[in-house]
Computed example of a mutant assay.
Amino acid sequence: MALVAGEVSGDMLAARLMAGLRPQLPNARFHGIGGPRMIEQGLVSDVPIETLTVRGLFEIIPRFREIKGIQNRLRDRLLAERPAAFIGADYPGFNLGLEEQLRAGGIPTVHFVGPQIWAWRGGRIKKIQRAVSHMLVIFPFEEQIYRDAGVPVTYIGHPLAETIPLVPDVGAARASLGIAPDARVVTVMPGSRMGELKYLAEPFVRAAGLLARRDPGLRFVVPMAGEKQRAYFSEIVAQAGLDDIALTLVDNSHTAIAAADAVLVASGTATLEVALFKKPMVIAYKVMRASWEIMRHMGYQPWIGLPNILAREFLVPELLQHAATPEAMADAVWTQLNDTAGRDRLAERFTEMHHSLLRDSAALSAEAVLGIIRP
């Protein structure tokens, strides 16, 4: 079996699927490209997952030849080896092109997490029809979209809804971080990728500094994806002259979210994690200016944050590109911290969202894959 994930979120999704497949295929061998979670499940990764991680439209240009070379080498290897199936975990720019070539060569293909054709680039449905033998979707409204397009599809729920408890243990999270139960905590999540940190670390740090001026007792918790990210973020804090604020860098993002009273978070899968932890949040997003000028004209809906997309309304604030200033972010987080009634309403809505996404994703995704390799 061959699998490719290009980002942290895809690594988590694919590992969940592998865990569901293992009891049914105890002797299966997995190889491709993935991260630590997939490797824990037995994947032999041809290259480190970080090699594929690129953010934005123009940011990929300097690395296009390198990434295209990885794709071509993997394609040639898989066409020679003939795996039982290829599973692409998200990362559609890379995986759909690979899947199209593999399927044309007679290898069944599964794409895990439908590309957001409902949000932008709807024309990709034609490529999906050619590339994908079976689509696994994680949001309930997606199933009908692919069914109408003639793409075999299974709604499996979102794996995060299974791993995050319906009622998070705030006290345990704070105790593990050495934070008092009555402290006010803001969790700051500028992203797991260096490309995100490049654009968001400094404004997020400065927003934290502004909040600390308003309430010197505030505690800030910042989950970091690795040592490189930790070192970069620490340097930004030092450059901003904010070493004196109560800021703690941690490894576990879920503990950091569970401990929070409010969260400042980069747009992406992390926004859904925050919603599943039932936390008020402010979503921010910044990329290269040229990428933004193109992307802002390509969207089909007014929201970019997953909680707002699922709710079909602005449940939480979104500050995008030029609007994502330290002052605006600090003001929005401050409002979230002090709006008790709003926090209760959000918790209720996010609990409903959690239930709608809760399925046995490992079993359902494994069943769909087995249906392809054992028709």
Rank of each mutant, 00 (worst) to 15 (best):
G171C: 01
I107Y: 02
N308M: 01
L74A: 03
G371F: 03
A161N: 08
Y155M: 08
A323H: 09
M353A: 02
D251A: 12
A368W: 04
P92M: 10
D182T: 13
G122Y: 07
G105D: 13
K279V: 02
W334A: 05
R29M: 11
Q71D: 03
L3Q: 06
L197D: 07
A324V: 03
A363Y: 08
P152H: 06
H111K: 13
M353Q: 03
G69T: 10
G114V: 10
L79K: 14
R37A: 13
P108F: 09
G69N: 11
I373M: 12
I117V: 15
F204K: 03
F58T: 15
V316C: 06
I60P: 05
M224E: 10
L249Y: 06
I145M: 10
V4Q: 04
G32T: 06
S267P: 11
I164R: 01
A131D: 07
R312D: 15
V369I: 12
S361F: 08
A183H: 07
K286H: 09
V250S: 08
A363N: 11
L264N: 03
A183L: 05
Y199V: 06
V333F: 01
M1R: 07
A175Q: 14
M12A: 13
P168T: 04
A183Y: 03
V221W: 02
V113S: 10
R174G: 08
P203C: 04
R124H: 14
S253L: 02
E100L: 00
V185D: 05
D344W: 00
D46W: 03
A238F: 01
Q101A: 12
A311K: 01
A183N: 08
G123P: 00
V167C: 00
G56P: 10
L74K: 03
Q71E: 13
K278R: 12
L315A: 04
R63L: 11
E293P: 00
E50K: 11
R75V: 07
H355E: 15
R65E: 15
R16D: 15
H134N: 07
M135H: 08
R345A: 07
G10A: 09
L21N: 07
W334P: 02
I70E: 10
L3C: 14
A258K: 00
R345C: 00
A80Q: 11
M288D: 15
A208V: 08
D90V: 11
E143W: 01
E196L: 03
L306C: 06
A328W: 12
E202Q: 09
L98K: 02
G34D: 07
E50Q: 14
T325Q: 09
I164G: 02
A225S: 14
I156T: 13
R343L: 00
R37S: 11
R75Q: 11
N308V: 02
F277I: 01
Q229T: 12
V316K: 01
R193W: 08
G56E: 13
R312W: 04
V237I: 14
R82I: 06
A324P: 01
I373E: 14
G114E: 13
A104G: 15
F58A: 14
V205Y: 03
H31F: 10
V8A: 13
